[in-house]
Amino acid sequence: MTDTTRVALVTGATGGIGSAVARRLAADTMAVGVHYAGNKAAAEELAAEIRAAGGRAVAVGGDVADEHAMAEAFDAVEEAFGGVDVVVHTAGEMLLGPVADFDLAALDRMHRTNIRGTFVVAQQAARRVRSGGAVVTFSTSVTRLSFPGYAAYAASKGAVEAMTLILARELRGRDVTVNAVAPGPTATPLFLNGKDQETVDRLAAQSPLERLGTPDDIAETVAFLAGPGRWVNGQVVYTNGGVA
Rank of each mutant, 00 (worst) to 15 (best):
A27H: 06
D28T: 09
T29P: 05
M30G: 07
M30K: 02
A31V: 01
G33H: 02
G33R: 02
V34A: 01
H35Q: 14
Y36V: 08
Y36M: 15
K40C: 10
K40D: 10
K40W: 13
A42I: 04
A43W: 01
A43H: 00
A43M: 01
A43D: 01
A47S: 04
A48M: 09
A48N: 11
I50C: 02
I50D: 03
I50A: 01
I50K: 03
R51D: 05
A52V: 01
A52Q: 05
A53W: 06
A53V: 07
G54W: 09
G54L: 10
G54N: 05
G55Y: 07
R56G: 01
R56C: 02
R56I: 02
R56S: 03
A57K: 01
A59V: 12
G61I: 13
G61A: 09
G62F: 11
D63Y: 11
V64N: 04
V64A: 12
A65T: 04
D66M: 01
H68T: 15
H68D: 15
A69L: 05
A69W: 08
A71P: 07
E72T: 14
E72S: 08
E72L: 10
A73N: 15
F74S: 03
D75W: 11
V77R: 00
V77P: 02
E78L: 01
E78A: 04
A80E: 14
A80Q: 05
A80W: 09
F81D: 03
F81L: 01
G83E: 13
G83N: 10
V84M: 13
V84K: 15
D85A: 05
D85W: 06
V87R: 02
V88N: 03
V88L: 03
H89Q: 14
H89C: 08
T90W: 02
G92R: 08
G92K: 13
E93P: 04
M94R: 13
L95F: 12
L95T: 12
L96K: 13
G97E: 10
G97I: 11
P98W: 08
P98F: 15
V99E: 12
A100P: 02
A100W: 10
F102S: 08
F102P: 06
D103H: 10
D103K: 10
L104Y: 06
A106K: 11
L107D: 08
L107K: 11
L107Q: 12
D108Q: 06
D108T: 15
D108L: 13
D108M: 06
R109K: 14
M110N: 14
M110L: 08
M110H: 09
R112H: 02
R112P: 02
T113Y: 09
T113C: 07
N114W: 10
N114P: 08
I115D: 01
I115S: 00
R116D: 06
G117N: 13
G117K: 04
G117Q: 13
T118I: 11
T118Y: 05
V120M: 06
V120C: 03
V121D: 11
V121N: 09
A122T: 11
A122S: 10
Q123V: 03
Q123Y: 09
A126I: 05
A126N: 05
R127D: 03
R127Y: 03
R127I: 03
R127M: 06
R127C: 04
V129R: 04
R130E: 03
V135W: 09
V135T: 07
V135N: 07
V136Y: 11
V136M: 11
T137S: 07
T137R: 06
T137F: 12
T137M: 09
F138H: 07
F138S: 08
S139Y: 12
